[in-house]
Design a protein around this nucleic acid. Structure first.
Length: 247
DNA sequence: AAAACAGGCAACCGCGGAAGG
DNA sequence: ACCTTCCGCGGTTGCCTGTTT
């Protein structure tokens, strides 16, 4: 996004603090201040740097925009999968998630999540949204063909366990681990747990072949249904799930 | 061509915890 | 023990821009 000059009406508060978008001159003053004094003591910035900004505003500007170690550009697929995984583990603890992504700010990650994932979780409400979703699904269909191939590779890890009678009783616990991978998401956990329960119900003998491969496929497709385009964006995540299985 | 809509993101706000007096 | 200040975090706002109707 380009410069946002003019997007906020500049307000001079009673206390004399400036608000709204930062000017190049203000940025320069802040950078200069941090270079001389280091980070911290933000409330003294206005006095020492000649900025009419409060401490909070200065800190925010530095942390989210001016820090030299910030990574510019789009979130990469690798970063995206890390965000998904860490959010599944920690929820909205953006600063914690940001620590695992050098060069990315909590604000950036929070914005990314809200724009890319939060809306996808909502079911479509009106007709235009449904139409849009249909179009999206069509566009994603071809992509999913490729993703399915990757998924099949992941499945091989599970199926390998199924085919090994020595591992028969390890499968439910493995699925349990995968369910625990989503501690904050009851629906996703439910998919894994339903697989486990189906396995248990079919377990009328100790024969491993009672564990039908379709059971697991169904469960995984349910996961995809839940996410809509889960597989279109989450290859790495699945790879990690596979790692979980293998481990 | 223009209006309406949605996406993206910088910046603000309120709250709570830590530190210092 | 209490109060004040500072800092950091998560939530929210509001404008610009690109896309769709």
């Amino acid at each position: 996004m380009g410069s946002h000059v003019g997007c906020w009406s500049i307000i001079e508060e009673e206390a004399g603090w400036r608000k709204g978008p930062w000017t190049a001159e203000e940025d320069r003053l802040l950078i200069e201040y941090v270079r001389m004094h280091g980070e911290g003591r933000w409330n003294s910035v206005s006095r020492l740097a000649g900025l009419k900004r409060n401490g909070k505003s200065c800190r925010l500007r530095w942390v989210n925009y001016l820090r030299p170690d910030l990574k510019r550009g789009q979130i990469t697929p690798q970063e995206e999968s890390i965000i998904i995984e860490l959010h599944a583990r920690w929820g909205n603890r953006w600063s914690t998630i940001a620590r695992s992504l050098p060069g990315r700010t909590d604000n950036e990650i929070k914005n990314y999540w809200r724009t890319h994932f939060k809306k996808k979780a909502k079911s479509p409400i009106n007709v235009s949204e449904k139409a849009k979703n249909r179009l999206l699904r069509r566009q994603q269909f071809q992509q999913q063909q490729k993703q399915q191939q990757q998924l099949q590779l992941d499945m091989k890890g599970i199926v390998a366990l199924l085919e090994d009678s020595n591992n028969h009783y390890e499968v439910p616990s493995t699925l349990c681990s995968m369910a625990n991978f989503y501690p904050n998401n009851a629906e996703e956990q439910g998919c894994f747990y339903s697989m486990i329960s189906t396995i248990d119900n079919n377990d009328n003998s100790s024969a491993p072949e009672a564990l039908n491969e379709e059971i697991l496929w169904d469960g995984l497709w349910n996961l995809d249904d839940f996410h809509g385009n889960f597989s279109a964006t989450n290859t790495t995540s699945k790879a990690n799930l596979h790692n979980l299985v293998v481990s």
